[in-house]
């Protein structure tokens, strides 16, 4: 949290653009959300209540899915047995539903089966019946895997099912991406992939995609703030500073070892299972590493001094 806030301050002072380090999944979800909305729930609520879980693709093998499937659901509707269906994947304890046509077309065919359309396939009839008969069903999916079209299909499925029963969805998005989207929304009024070069925040997911800006040569410097993830290869084409918790030292032109929040120092992080922010004390406190926010604020001070304070 504090590193993010400091990164926003540095972007403000230097006129930089801001992007998240792993936003492809989040953006598949955000684009659809801004176009048509969403029906969503938390993994914790799904774990407590869902009598049917539909795991799509990579969601069959994900830590949040393990959490969601664990234990006996305390809030599950009386008289129901939990059913877990793995679409296009395999998971112990789950019924496998093949997706030979691909995940997104199969989701489309499921919608067709629900609506009894001519394109419906007989092999989907049982799952379609199960979805319709669920009392509180949840689809878990990875938006990075499905892309915008696939996310739209999942959310369309939600709208179809909620005409008669209750169903919701969980998008499995990187926790750091959730955090940066939230802080960006309240700091800039918009999601990240926003630029501050013109004095007011401008939001444009294409224009301010950091990878595109770097690869096209539009950007001339990069600051990487993600202590637990090293910068990807495309960042090596321009002068870069990386703030990392466990650096090798050759990840960027300048590498600063910083404290890992929740490990070396206390910090506010995203809890993927509760789908909100949580404060984590340091599990192995050490004081020889500065917080990323301290480095970023020092840079902001220097940039402000060199550029001059605004009138």
């Amino acid at each position: 949290m504090e590193a993010l806030r400091a990164a926003f301050r540095l972007a403000q002072a230097s006129g930089a653009a801001l992007d998240g380090s792993d936003l492809d999944g989040a953006y598949s979800e955000l684009s659809v959300l801004a176009a048509s909305g969403a029906m969503a729930t938390t993994p914790a609520e799904a774990r407590a209540r869902a009598d049917l879980l539909l795991l799509v693709g990579r969601a069959t093998d994900h830590a949040v899915t393990d959490f969601t499937c664990a234990g006996t659901p305390p809030r599950q509707a009386a008289g129901t047995e939990r059913r877990v269906i793995a679409l296009g994947g395999i998971r112990a304890g789950a019924e496998a539903m093949p997706a030979p046509a691909g995940l997104v077309p199969t989701l489309g065919l499921l919608r067709a089966a629900l609506a009894s359309r001519p394109s419906a396939r007989p092999e989907h009839a049982d799952v379609a019946r199960a979805l319709k008969g669920a009392r509180f069903g949840v689809v878990l999916y990875d938006p990075a895997e499905l892309g915008e079209m696939g996310v739209d299909m999942v959310l369309g499925l939600m709208r179809d099912l909620n005409a008669t029963t209750r169903f919701s969805s969980c998008a499995l998005v990187e926790p750091a991406a959730r955090l940066v989207v939230a802080v960006s929304a309240w700091t800039l009024g918009q999601a990240p992939r926003s630029g501050l070069g013109r004095g007011v925040p401008e939001h444009d997911p294409w224009r301010f995609n950091a990878e595109r800006q770097v690869c096209s040569g539009e950007a001339d410097t990069l600051v990487w703030v993600h202590p637990s993830v090293p910068p990807p290869a495309w960042t090596r084409s321009l002068p870069a500073l990386a703030l990392l918790a466990d650096p090798r030292g050759d990840e960027a032109d300048i590498v600063v070892a910083v404290a890992a929040p929740g490990r070396d120092s206390a910090g506010t992080l995203w809890d993927a299972e509760r789908a909100t922010m949580t404060f984590r004390p340091a599990t192995a406190p050490r004081t020889d590493r500065p917080a990323a926010a301290v480095i970023l604020d020092a840079l902001t001070e220097r940039v402000t001094m060199e550029r001059g304070h605004p009138c």
Partner: peptide, 13 residues
């Protein structure tokens, strides 16, 4: 917006 206060003039912030 106010270039001196980009966050303060950001709509919805």
């Amino acid at each position: 917006g106010d270039p001196n206060r980009p966050f303060g003039s950001a709509c919805g912030s």
